[in-house]
Design a protein around this nucleic acid. Structure first.
Lengths: 250, 250
DNA sequence: CTAGGTGAATTACATAGGTTAAGACTGCAT
DNA sequence: ATGCAGTCTTAACCTATGTAATTCACCTAG
């Protein structure tokens, strides 16, 4: 079944735990109902909104972001295929940030009740969702470290390592290449740098043969070398979770 | 009952929802078993550890932090009285960061089983824990914004606003003053600045009459003014959660 | 009361990264 | 074809912040 193999949410969660056929089917149905599309610079959710649905990105890139009053913008995190837009916000009163599309995005809108049914009936799913939320928290912490301590070159290199590994987890890499639909302005907003300096830094990374970046395609000739330059330690992505080996009944 | 009123965990959670007497009692018992103490610069948990307990800070300040290979250190977040050290890490293989004490710290160690019992029997407690985890995620996002976009002065001002409000939520402020046991080196590690620049910035904040900082005591003469300087919007702390008004059976 | 350690303050100087501006390239819409 | 709009690139210049080093003021252990 094609969908089963290509649903990024399933691919992502299976890095952590093996899902039963039924669970996968459930996720697939969920990801095929209420599917929406949005163009490249739209908002999926806005600060202040109070979503009553859970949105899952199926294809394309989005980001969490926040504006300051004077126009400065920080991209808080990247929302890649398979990622939730608003995990568990049902508890909170309103969104404290916005989620915008960076490319055309396809996403599924799950009504709240549907999510609750799924997790109630399938503890392994709610376990997997929890794992996902915890990994996202870890990623956010790592961005804190990047923004606080790493210099521009390390920071950019670190970002690319992270993107590559996250995309690989959802089957969106080919060899040592992947999509990178972020503009330099986007990278600047994500890494707290100016566009000019992002450009300088990319040139430097290219000169060091650490990356090849043509159009929207990123190639990493030597991942180990890039990781070194970034002081990148993949432990925070928790790709080695034990759940994976606990049981395998599908 | 004195303990009931001074347990910072209860005070914190009650900002979000009203707890029943039984629930509070449960939290109190939890917070009085397995109590540990640690001096000012110790580690409560280390990167790589695999904690089988849930640690709750009862008094004193701690922080999550991470070292880079060359000695740079980033404080990722502050762990204040009433905060969990390791919410839900049972799912993950190992700690991807350390938690260290900034002052002498008293904390309770809850065995995993105990936590699971509590949340299983008291859905409102697990709801409250979830709220807490979500607020922590929001705080982490706000730090990302601070580190990425705010200049030193705004950044420091923002930190002080946040600390003050968080402490007020657990009854640790007096008027417009609170404890601030962070050294300037600590603030530097938290805000991604050098010690010298932290000092300069503090002088500036003092000259602007935005803060009074003597010894370990911070006073904020005019909170609105400080918030302005920081572009501080408290919405991310979600102190207005609706759960608070839903029911009140205690 | 003295030594050594820690935190704060300040100065002089260095630099990573920001700002502004302008040109070149791209793709798309008319 | 033409023209606009977004993106990338580069250059010249500027500044917020970092680095190094010194002094002072505590505090605590002997």
């Amino acid at each position: 079944m094609d969908l089963l193999a290509s649903n990024p949410l399933i691919l992502k969660l299976e890095q952590f735990t093996r899902l039963s056929f039924e669970e996968k089917q459930l996720l697939n149905v969920a990801a095929s109902e209420g599917v929406r599309q949005i163009g490249p610079r739209g908002d999926i959710i806005r600060e202040g909104d109070r979503p009553q649905t859970l949105n899952i990105v199926l294809s394309g890139w989005a980001c969490r972001y926040k504006h300051l009053e004077d126009g400065r913008r920080q991209i808080i995190s990247l929302v890649l295929p398979g990622d939730f837009c608003d995990s568990h916000v049902f508890v909170l009163r309103q969104m404290d940030h916005s989620i915008g599309s960076l490319t055309p995005v396809t996403y599924a809108q799950l009504p709240r009740r549907r999510v609750e049914e799924m997790t109630a009936k399938h503890p392994r799913l709610s376990q997997a969702f929890l794992w996902d939320a915890l990994v996202n928290a870890a990623i956010q912490r790592e961005w804190t470290v990047s923004l606080g301590q790493r210099h521009a070159l390390e920071r950019m290199a670190h970002l690319m390592c992270e993107i590559f590994l996250r995309l690989r987890g959802v089957g969106q890499t080919e060899g040592n290449s992947c999509d990178l639909p972020l503009t330099q302005a986007g990278m600047a907003d994500a890494m707290g740098l100016s566009v000019v300096h992002v450009n300088r830094t990319l040139q430097e990374l290219r000169a060091m043969k650490l990356i090849v970046l043509k159009g929207r395609t990123l190639t990493i000739p030597d991942i180990a070398a890039l990781q070194d330059a970034a002081q990148f330690n993949p432990n925070y992505l928790h790709l080695d979770a034990e759940g994976r080996h606990l049981d395998a009944n599908d």
